[in-house]
Each structure stands twice: as C-alpha cells, then as structure tokens.
C-alpha cells in the first residue's frame, strides 16, 4: 500500500499548506515538515523512516498501521499528521529490539503468533493494551481486543495462544 512522500520532494511540500509537526517518537524528539493532508502513517514511515508501521488498507479496517499515541492505541491511517503535534508516540520499533524483545513479542515468537508479520503492529499493540487493562483476560476479552486487526496468514489461533501466553507471564511477574 502506498504511503509514500519522499523526503527529497521539497517542491511538493511548498505548494501545499504544510506544517512542521513536532512530537516524541520512541523516546526521541522528532520533527518533520509535511503537507497538512499527510496521514500520521505517512509521517511515521516516509518522514521518520520507521517502516515497521504498515499500511494494509489506509481505511481504518486492518490495524496494520497501529501505534500508541499518548497511551492510546491508534490506527495511524485515520489520523492526520498535524493532529499528532505534541504527542508522544510508540511504534512497533519502540517496543523492543532483537535481543531485548518486549514480553509480548517474546510470547508471539514462542507461540508462533505470526507468519508474514505484516499485521503484527496491530496484534502486538492490541495485546499490550489488553494486558494493561486486564490481568487475566477471558477468551472473549482476547477476541474482542483483537477484533480490529485482520490477519490473513495465521487464522488467529496462534495469535490467541500468544496472547494467553503473554497474559500468564505478565501475571507471574508483577511490576
């Protein structure tokens, strides 16, 4: 899916109403100038170079573009970039890194909760959000929490197993 607005194409930015958006992304202060019609997912991917946030529909349907904005999980294709001015954002890159995965990422690897991985931002953020609010989620809680995220590869069963596994682990390690 297309989200592209190459950084070099300054002339396009000049001709359209544009703003400078300043925000904190994965603990780093960032700013970028972009046309006001730019979607947050475009800002994240094309201006900030964080390609882990994916665009599967640009229509709010799939969840592949999910990030955390000021503590709330958000489909970044449904937000205009200027509306994110002053926010604090975590993208999937900010959850963990190779060698130091977030416990939910660990659970997804162990339980094979993904195949192609394209849908992962939505599944991971929805799981983290669920477990933030619910120590011992029921199966209905889990299915409800993941409802906004389409996965074509897994049939969801191993995603649900991953969420259960993550829930057990988080429950065992109170912080």
């Amino acid at each position: 899916m297309s989200t592209t607005q190459p950084p070099g194409s300054a002339h396009a930015h000049d001709e359209l109403p544009s703003s400078t958006v300043t925000l904190i992304v994965n603990d780093q202060p960032r700013s970028a100038r972009c046309p006001d019609r730019t979607l947050l997912v475009e800002l994240i991917r094309d201006e900030l170079g964080l390609f882990g946030t994916h665009a599967g529909c640009l229509n709010g349907d799939c969840g592949a573009c999910t990030v955390n904005v000021d503590g709330r999980i958000t489909k970044s294709c449904l937000v205009l970039a200027p509306a994110a001015e002053g926010t604090t954002i975590t993208t999937v890159e900010g959850l963990g890194e190779p060698g130091a995965l977030h416990p939910v990422q660990e659970a997804f690897w162990e339980k094979d909760g993904f195949q192609c991985g394209f849908c992962l931002p939505g599944q991971l953020f929805a799981t983290i959000d669920l477990l933030d609010h619910e120590d011992a989620p029921s199966d209905d809680d889990i299915r409800g929490a993941l409802a906004g995220n389409i996965c074509r590869c897994t049939g969801y069963q191993k995603i649900i197993d991953s969420v259960r596994c993550a829930a057990e682990r988080t429950a065992r390690t109170p912080d």
Binding site: R45, L50, F51, L101, W109, P121
Partner: peptide
C-alpha cells in the same frame, strides 16, 4: 522457532514498500 522472528516482531522486516532508493 521461526527464523528472523526477532526482526519481524520488532518492525525490522523489510517489505516492498520499505525499500528506499534515491530519486
């Protein structure tokens, strides 16, 4: 376990639209 799982899980897998080419 799935190879490259740590890359994919942390948003470091590169798909077609993630390829950056000059110009």
């Amino acid at each position: 376990r799935r190879k490259d799982g740590d890359l994919i899980l942390t948003g470091r897998g590169r798909y077609l639209d993630d390829i950056e080419l000059p110009r």
